[in-house]
Design a protein around this nucleic acid. Structure first.
Lengths: 237, 237
DNA sequence: CCCGTCAATTCAGTATACAGATTTCGCCTT
DNA sequence: AAGGCGAAATCTGTATACTGAATTGACGGG
């Protein structure tokens, strides 16, 4: 109120402050604009928005309870996931997403399929241009679209939660051309299955897609371990 | 501090107040000691514990974000789940729990299996006595035990979340002798699979168990609809 | 130059206070 | 007595203040 917020473009659409801040932070996390080295301090965020600590604190606590942040004695931060954490997350995703994809294939309407097509085009162009950030953005739109087609909101939200967590650590790998091609091909296959309303194909391809994502992540890890100096690349905002 | 808490036996084990209250409420919800007609008012709970609103409020907000409560304009309450909600919850459970059961069968240690045996005995005795509350309690211990054997904490916690939500609405059905027998037989089968460390059997039986639970719930619903006067039975404390 | 100690700082957790919205309940009208 | 109007009560959301614990950094001894 006193200053225009540096945290977001415009935070002001008649919802509780807590929700606005939650959504804002959630979005920043999704797009990798907050890295593991950043420290989120409720007082600072509040001051930068010209509001009090409490709504910010409550939003941060919710993000913690959802696994998107961890609370330290010195500020809130993005968790440093271990390889085991990643494996655990992928295990859950492998159980949920194929099924949800099959549901989506059945329930997607024309508008949804059109949006999938647009997201796919963006992704293809991004890979062409080697633009990792754009690929991430297109990926997010694509996923959100087929998830939104699911009538089972609990299932969709649970998937979104875990997918976002995995996504954060994959940002790095999505910069590599090899991985980008794999992602593109996966999206092409999924889009094909969705647009044909082929639930079985969607299920199988989603399972394969997730498997590939996991594999490419751990390949990236190994490379980084064998070749440590390539492992820099800003984690911060 | 000023008064001994009516909320719990002893809330005082060197953790943040927010966690203590969260755990306390979570437990009450699990055991059905808070029904859909109760209104949870942060100010009142805080006063009864001799503390301030904020820790209580934060615990309630977390329970909302996990789906265990809903916020109204007049206090927090247990959600009234529709049949579709229940189907959605069971859909997720059917995807996750068989796999987790297989993991547990592999990883359970002797102590865990012993605890499963005890819980099973309690359940059998409860069914014998027609003691619904005791069956609920034994059920909770049984589930918690095999879930705790899972190394994938995210998977275990997600399951616990959904299972608890389903459990709340099933409290009613667990009073019926017919359902009690089904539950008992299911637990016997699961215990057998776990104690033999037979992952495949655990997986299959868990799938069957959940299917039975869903079926018996909807059978109960139909009966209640056809026969409304039997549908009373305290929901609140 | 390194290590330990102690003070200043920083931040989460908790407490208390205030504001706005909604509901409840009593009173008045008809 | 039924219905509507309005004041009081109630409860969430937000703001501000306080406290204690943990970290940082400076100072002094080895």
């Amino acid at each position: 109120m006193t200053t225009d917020s540096p945290l977001s473009s415009t935070v002001d659409r008649s919802e509780s402050l807590r929700h606005q801040i939650y959504n804002d932070l959630r979005d920043k996390l999704r797009h990798g604009r907050i890295g593991p080295d950043d420290r989120l301090i409720d007082v600072k965020i509040a001051k930068s928005l010209g509001i009090s600590r409490m709504p910010v604190r409550e939003a941060l606590l919710q993000l913690i309870s959802e696994g998107h942040l961890v609370g330290t004695t010195r500020g809130f931060a993005v968790p440093q996931l271990t390889p085991q954490d990643i494996r655990d997350i992928f295990e859950v995703r492998k159980l949920l997403e194929p099924r949800a994809a099959a549901s989506a294939a059945r329930d997607l309407d024309a508008a949804g399929i059109a949006m999938l097509g647009q997201a796919l085009e963006r992704a293809v162009a991004a890979v062409e241009a080697g633009d990792g950030e754009e690929l991430v953005a297109a990926n997010i739109v694509f996923r959100r679209t087929w998830l939104d087609a699911n009538r089972n909101r609990r299932l969709a939200e649970t998937i979104a939660r875990f997918a976002d967590q995995a996504h954060i650590v994959r940002q790095q790998t999505l910069m590599e051309p090899h991985t980008q091609v794999i992602v593109r091909d996966g999206l092409v296959g999924l889009h094909d299955a969705f647009s044909r309303r082929d639930g079985l194909a969607a299920q199988d391809r989603m399972a394969a897609f997730i498997g590939e994502a996991e594999k490419s992540y751990f390949r990236g890890i190994d490379n980084a371990a064998a070749d440590p100096q390539t492992h820099q690349e800003g984690s911060g905002r």
